[in-house]
Structure formats: structure tokens, C-alpha cells
Design a protein around this nucleic acid. Structure first.
Length: 582
RNA sequence: GGGUGCGUAACUCAGUGGAUAGAGUAGCUGCCUUCUAAGCAGCGAGUCGUAGGUUCGAGUCCUACCGCACCCGCCA
């Protein structure tokens, strides 16, 4: 990629000017902070001033004298206190564009050493409905998985659903009490019932000591494999699974379900192993590992509890078992957990214990990829007025129907006739795209002020803005009756500033995706695609394509096609579809 | 009390130790017989929470403080 080439050249120039001992220093080549300084800038001269006992500008000019970049950019200029500025040559850009024109990957490299990578994301709880909080994990995790897959990694997408634990005792106990037939009949309830059932069960659990007791016994029965308890559990899971699947279908999310229950048989082994390693301690009746570097409210060492007083296991044990399984059985080299930032401490504890227990072999990387909470207008965790979280299903329905309303209003204004199939398809892609983009375009680590209006917005920095840029290119192709797949190569000629600006941005995809893969921040990709669309819209506004004489016409068609292909590829990595017309 | 994260334009947010801190929204002004106006151009809007420090250079790194959120023993 261009920036790497420049870094290499600067590195060589530094060695030539000041000797091999300066070969290891960072060249500090970065994209220019302002277009009037060119395309890239090198800041290294300022940082060398002290070491070399020379003025930065003098250092800069010695580096520039030794730079071999004549085929790439104009002669570098030295500006301000000692910046070296690079402006790429049109001829170089043309060659690069012609190269990626023939490449379905648009110049994006595959990694040289693919890694077996687990991405653990989404992870809703059985018998609860997915709410907007799950959107972040689901959308961000999916995008990260798509990006890693595209880079050539072997990705296992795991849905660590909450399908085990004490809440099932409560649910099954309530089923047994209120709907005894449910334990023996298949499909007697739908999820709507299940959610209200969860609430009722919770009420009973909170209010009634006797019910609490039978709920606990139900857990034991379930764990020991009692037929009817097992049946109730499966019923609950299946009902939930169906509802999750409809949402995953709408969002086009592919996931392998491997819930907490999967690791259940492995839990005793984990505790034994911890004991064998001499890490296990007993405290207030619970078996735990005391963490290093963590203290609790009273200032004493904080435990990670792996076996409760009643003998049951909890999520820490399950997470350790899952970690171990993914390394031993799945052969994962990298494990990524996409969960909210509130679990940071928990994962730090789990990773520490895994490390101390020798479960993390050399070369295996575990990474918590946190995202901020979804907050309501009060600045606290989001809840609706009735005290419930916003249902994901409702949000998606609202997004699609909002997009449909908007489209229908346009059709009236523009006096267009479209089929219901067209309208529904466009509404679907625009609505779902808008919701996904609204989430992904925000830095994942910051908390998220949820707003229906923002999620459903269709103007400005939103998915439809980029879809629209894409559609404009397809419109050119239709109007001119041109097959964009058959454009001649070696036909790019860049002259107008809008063309150059667009071309330079197209060529940065590889660089941006590299950063996104490194930092796992999809909002960087969103930013890139938004800027690409902005630059294309300016080009579209000021530079006629079809009416331009040759060779500009073909050259601009290539630029348009590359823009569209970049948008399509970039959006696909965000899990967003494109449209030919809208 | 301890830990983690966050305080940037009216609002929602970007911002990689570099030059004069950027978008979008909202408001105002122009631009559709032209490749789709879900667009383009322009205008106004800032003590980057406060105070120190490191550095040639700090919104960015360090320390303290203020404010907010989240986590801190048997939920995940």
C-alpha cells in the first residue's frame, strides 16, 4: 500500500543520510493533516532534532535529498518547522487504479499468516427477548467477523447463548406450576408468552420463599437429567431459538450456536484442574481463585468464584471451560469476545486465572472487545417508560416501516411508479442498513445515547447516503447503457481536482482495512465510506461522465465503477446490502 | 472505598503526539427542462471538564481534582 511504500523510502533515506543505526526508528509517515499539505506527511525530522543536534529543517532536507520517490510523487517539499510533504503524481494514481480495476479484492491484501479465530458475539439469553443492547454485540461482532474473514482468517462465529443457569430452575418451576402440559407437549407457547412467563416467574421467585426452594430443586433435577425438566428446558430453548433466528435472518447474521449448556459437562474438570494447579481456595463456602491485583470493597483480594456454596457452577467456570475448549478442541489462536464494557473486570479475571492455570499456550491471544452501554435520555442504561428495554424486533420493524413511508412520499413527489416488491425491498435494505450503520458508525468503546430518531434517520451520515452514491453510479450505467464490468483497462486519466481527490481516497481502502483489522473499530471503515461517498458526490455534481468527451468519459466511468465497487465491498464488511435503484 | 471508561460546537459524535480541532443533525441562504435533490454549495456556531506536568510540539501521554456512567462473592 502507498503509505508503506513511502515509509520504506523514508526509512532508506534516513539510513542513507544518517547511518544504519537510525534504521529502526519510526518514520512517522502519516496521511496529511490537511489537503493543502499534500497527501502524506513525514514528521520524523522534528523527532530527530535532539538526537542529531541539528535543526529539524536541515534534517528534513537531508532526508529529502536521499529520497527516491520520483515515480510516486512530486518532489517532496519541506514546510513549517520541518515537515516533509508528499503529493502523489496523477500518473502513479492512474497506474494504481488500473491495477485494482482488474482485482475483485480492490487491492486489499490477504494476510500472510491466517489465524484460526473465534469471534464470540450476540449471546442473547434464552427466554428473554433480544433488546437494543444485543444489537451492538450482534452488529459489531458480525462486522468484525466479516472483516477478519475477508482478510483471510479462518473465523468461527460462536453464539454463547445463555441457555443454562439458575434462571431455568425458576422458569421450569413456574411452567410446572402454571402450565403443566407445557412440560409434556411440544410448541404449546410462543415467545410472547415466554417473555411474560419469565416476568411472572421472576415475580414468584422474588416474592415466595417456597417457590424459590422448588426453583432451586428444579435446577438440580435439570442438571441430573430428569426427563420432564429436560423437556421443559428444551421447549424454552427452541421457542427462543426460533425468535432469535427471525432476527438473525432480518439482520443477515450467521452464527453457530454453542450455548453455556454445551460446556456443562466440562465444568467439574475445570475446578479440578484449578485445584491441581494449587489455585483453588475456599471462602465463605464457595470455591474460588483469588485474583492478583484486584481488591473488593473491603480492600481484601477479590475472588473469582468457580463453584458456589450449593455446589453449582457459575459463568466464570463456564467462561474458563469455553476458553479451554476453544483452544484445545477448536484450535483457536485468537479468541475475541464482543461484550459490553461492563464485563471488562470479569474478563480480566477470567484471563488471569486461565493464564495462571496454564490454559493459555504461547501464541494464543484472548481479547475482550468491549463496547459502550446503550443509554437512554436520562444518561442511564436504556429503558422504556414502562421500565423495559426497547425490543429489537420493534426497532427493526419501525426502521423498515419508516423507510417505506419515506420512500412512498418520494415516489409521490417524483411521480414514480414502482412495484410493491421494489418498495418493500428498498425499505428493507434502507431501514436495516440505517440501523446497522447508526450503531457501527459510532466508536464502539463509547457509551451510546439511544435515539429512535437517530437510528431511523435517512439523511446525512447514514447508510442511505452511501447507498445513494452507489445507486448514482448504477444510474449512470443504466442511462448510458454501459456494462461497468467491461470497461477497458489502462484508460484512467486524472485531471480535475475532483477526480484526483476521489482517486486518492479509493486507493486508501487497503490502508484503512488494515487499521480496522488491527483496532477492531468498524467506525473507521464507516468514516472511510462516508468520505468516499462525499467525494464521489462532489465529483458527480461537478464532473459530467456520460456527456464528457473521450478519453475522459471512459476514465470517469472507471472511477465511478471503482467507487461503487469500493462502497459495495466496504458496506458488505459492515453487513449492509446495496441496491441498484432506490 | 477500589477498579474501569467517558467529559470536544445548541444536539449526537469523529479525531493516528504534529501545522489553523472536524463531521452529521438542527437553523439560515442559494442550486432540480441536466448522470436520481436520500444530493451539492455557502453562513453562523469551540476556555477540547479544571489545574499542573512530560515534550521541539498535547484534544491525544502522566498526575491531581470535579462531574457522569459501569463493575467490585456465589447473575452474565
Amino acid at each position: 500500500m502507498i503509505i508503506e511504500i513511502l515509509r520504506n523510502r523514508v526509512n532508506q533515506a534516513i539510513i542513507a543520510a544518517f547511518g544504519a543505526e537510525y534504521g529502526e526508528i519510526d518514520t512517522l509517515v502519516v496521511p496529511a493533516s490537511n489537503p493543502r499539505f499534500g497527501d502524506y506527511q513525514c514528521n520524523v525530522a522534528l523527532s530527530l532534532a535532539k538526537k542529531l543536534q541539528q535543526k529539524p529543517r536541515a534534517i528534513a532536507s537531508q532526508i529529502a535529498d536521499n529520497l527516491n520517490v520520483t515515480s510516486i510523487c512530486q518532489p517532496p517539499t519541506i514546510a513549517g518547522p520541518g515537515f516533509i510533504n508528499f503529493t502523489l503524481l496523477a500518473s502513479y494514481l492512474e497506474t494504481q487504479l488500473e491495477k485494482i480495476q482488474r482485482d475483485p479484492r480492490l487491492g486489499v491484501e490477504q494476510v500472510k499468516n491466517p489465524q484460526k479465530t473465534v469471534v464470540d458475539f450476540s449471546s442473547p439469553n434464552i427466554a428473554k427477548e433480544m433488546h437494543v443492547g444485543h444489537l451492538r454485540s450482534t452488529i459489531i461482532g458480525d462486522s468484525i467477523a466479516r472483516i477478519l474473514e475477508f482478510r483471510g482468517h479462518q473465523v468461527l462465529r460462536l453464539n454463547h447463548v445463555g441457555d443454562w443457569g439458575t434462571q431455568f430452575g425458576m422458569l421450569i418451576a413456574y411452567l410446572r406450576e402454571a402450565y403443566p402440559t407445557a412440560l409434556t407437549t411440544a410448541n404449546a407457547l410462543d415467545l410472547g408468552d415466554l417473555v411474560s412467563l419469565y416476568k411472572k416467574a421472576k415475580l414468584r421467585f422474588d416474592d415466595d420463599e417456597e417457590f424459590r426452594h422448588s426453583a432451586r430443586q428444579e435446577v438440580v433435577k435439570l442438571q441430573s437429567g430428569a426427563e420432564d425438566s429436560r423437556h421443559g428446558w428444551e421447549l424454552l430453548c427452541n421457542q427462543s431459538r426460533r425468535e432469535f433466528q427471525t432476527i438473525y435472518n432480518i439482520l443477515d447474521i450467521k452464527l453457530t450456536e454453542r450455548g453455556e449448556s454445551f460446556y456443562n459437562p466440562l465444568l467439574p474438570g475445570i475446578v479440578e484442574e484449578l485445584s491441581r494447579q494449587g489455585l483453588l481456595a475456599e471462602s465463605e463456602g464457595a470455591k474460588c481463585v483469588f485474583l492478583e491485583g484486584f481488591t473488593n470493597k473491603t480492600g481484601s483480594p477479590q475472588p473469582l468464584i468457580v463453584q458456589k456454596t450449593d455446589g453449582g457452577y457459575n459463568y466464570a467456570t463456564t467462561d474458563l471451560a469455553a476458553l479451554n475448549y476453544r483452544i484445545q478442541q477448536d484450535k483457536a489462536q485468537k479468541i475475541i469476545y464482543v461484550t459490553d464494557a461492563g464485563q471488562t473486570n470479569h474478563f480480566a479475571g477470567v484471563f488471569q486465572v486461565a493464564q495462571r492455570a496454564g490454559m493459555l499456550p504461547e501464541g494464543v491471544e484472548v481479547k475482550h472487545v468491549p463496547f459502550g452501554l446503550v443509554l437512554g435520555e436520562n444518561g442511564k442504561k436504556l429503558q422504556t417508560r414502562s421500565g423495559e428495554t426497547v425490543r429489537l424486533r420493534d426497532l427493526l420493524t419501525e426502521a423498515v416501516s419508516g423507510a417505506k413511508k419515506d420512500l412512498e412520499a418520494r415516489l409521490v413527489i417524483e411521480n414514480r411508479q414502482e412495484t410493491p416488491e421494489f418498495i418493500n425491498k428498498v425499505a428493507q435494505v434502507v431501514g436495516i442498513g440505517a440501523v446497522k450503520y447508526a450503531d457501527l458508525s459510532q466508536n464502539r468503546t463509547s457509551d451510546y445515547s439511544f435515539s429512535y430518531d437517530k437510528m431511523l434517520a435517512l439523511q446525512g451520515n447514514t447508510a442511505p447516503y452511501m447507498l445513494y452514491a452507489y445507486v448514482r453510479v448504477q444510474g449512470i450505467s443504466r442511462k448510458g447503457n454501459i456494462n461497468l464490468d467491461n470497461l477497458p483497462s489502462r484508460s484512467v486519466e486524472l485531471e480535475q481536482p475532483e477526480e484526483l481527490i476521489l482517486a486518492k481516497h479509493i486507493l486508501r481502502l487497503n490502508e484503512v482495512l488494515g487499521e480496522v483489522e488491527q483496532d477492531l473499530l468498524p467506525n473507521r471503515l464507516c468514516q472511510y465510506l462516508f468520505e468516499l461517498s462525499q467525494k464521489f458526490n462532489l465529483f458527480y455534481d461537478r464532473t459530467p461522465v456520460l456527456k464528457a468527451p473521450e478519453p475522459q468519459r471512459t476514465s470517469r466511468l472507471v472511477l465511478s465503477d471503482l467507487t461503487a465497487r469500493t462502497l459495495k465491498l466496504g458496506l458488505s464488511l459492515l453487513g449492509i446490502e446495496v441496491l441498484e435503484r432506490m
